[in-house]
Write a protein that binds this DNA or RNA. Structure first.
Lengths: 235, 235
DNA sequence: TTAATATTCAACTATACGATTGAATACTTT
DNA sequence: AAAGTATTCAATCGTATAGTTGAATATTAA
């Protein structure tokens, strides 16, 4: 009599599909990367340190859980998040982990104690300081991720290109570097390089998903944000 | 050289602990139940249709992922969510599933097409109508869940007690019943009984987690909310 | 102390999943 | 058409997990 136990069962089975999809470390890393923007299988595999075949399989699992979508463009397959809510959900998972798992808290605490991480810059007020031209904000992620969405006024300077473009950075104002988020080491390494060369550089911990979650505006595309253009402006 | 791949690996491994915890249908059901309030192992097992041993093991997994906490009171062990963020996270999962999984959408659409589910009541404005005394809101969940948190002014009348208390319900105003949330059938069955007896009854789809997510106020404890007291007031 | 009850533990089996490998497919370029 | 590249598929093996059963533990009641 009491209404279909199969209904409830079916619902939880479906939800468990999502749970299973995020029950594997490499898949979480892939999701985290895809939160930064669409990428090809090859790139994701390289970034996550997986074989292409393995990466492809994990992406397939994410696809079956309808968390990501694939689109074939010529020879390459580009994966992207199926929906912005997936990014929000992933962020929710991250926040839950940071808050509940002592192991993550410990790792983060150690990470934050490293010299480059001290006195991080907050999201709040950053936009105003950018608009006033008081600071230079560097997006040190790969350009594809910058193009997919970045902080308005930030300049794209991928970590791997940093050393060869140091001369173009201002020495008379603070430089703020950000990357994928609190777990990402790109900005940390950028700060390390910059400080070694005498720049006044600090890290902002948050990434684009956090920025978006705060309801702050984003800019997409190349815009004027590449380092060459930015330097031309600064002339 | 490039900063510890073990750091990133460790982080995703930790997050996957949470993923693994929610990768099983019965565990999701247990979490959903615990979002309604603390319960004993025995009760959870009964409600979720599990053997006690099996239930206990699943709770242990949730505990290891630090999503729930256990407290022994005399002979009984009471489990509760470790933190409100767990409830929020579970709700995020639910919303993601509703939005992304066609299978869930289909199940919900069918569910909503049943006669008792048509024209559901919205959260918005409900509180005002309660305060004005325009409607009677019934919380048809078990009393323990009602006590753990309910809509202010709602009256506790568990589904299993509904039939024996029909005479105490008003026939001159609308009755709104709610239960655990969109996947729960308690309110649906309550509406079915009420309408069969000629009451003007409708369902509110949302549960307490949704109500809380809207930032709306909650009431805890028994208060004046039990059906006997409520009827006395209405006398 | 003994009996009863709630919960957990330990052992077991069937099943599912992860990563690897090598082959197959699909598309582009020559 | 043929060669080259990106991606996926299929088969494999070792490991992990789910649920069952029966015993062990801890607390209360008699």
């Amino acid at each position: 009599m009491s209404a279909s136990p199969t209904f409830k069962k079916a619902i939880y089975e479906q939800l468990a599909r999502i749970g299973k999809a995020i029950a594997s470390p490499p898949r979480l890393e892939l999701l985290d990367l895809l939160c930064q923007g669409p990428r090809t299988v090859e790139h994701l595999a390289k970034e996550a340190g997986l074989t292409v075949a393995n990466c492809s399989q994990h992406l397939r699992v994410l696809h079956r859980a309808r968390l990501v979508e694939a689109e074939k463009n010529g020879l390459y397959v580009t994966y992207r998040l199926a929906d912005l809510v997936v990014c929000e959900f992933f962020r929710g998972l991250r926040v839950l982990g940071e808050q509940r798992l002592a192991e993550i808290e410990l790792l983060l605490r150690q990470f934050r104690e490293e010299p480059e991480m001290l006195e991080p810059v907050q999201m709040k007020g950053l936009l105003r300081r950018i608009r006033r031209g008081e600071i230079t904000v560097l997006d040190v992620r790969p350009t594809e991720e910058y193009d997919a969405g970045h902080i308005p006024g930030a300049v794209s300077l991928p970590l791997k290109d940093l050393k060869s473009h140091l001369s173009r950075l201002p020495r008379d104002q603070e430089i703020v570097a950000y990357c994928r988020g609190p777990f990402c080491v790109l900005a940390k390494e950028a700060i390390q390089v910059l400080r070694a060369k005498g720049f006044d550089a600090r890290r902002m911990e948050c990434g684009i998903p956090d920025w978006r979650a705060e309801g702050l505006p984003l800019e997409t595309g190349t815009g004027q944000g590449y380092i060459r253009a930015a330097i031309r402006r600064r002339g």
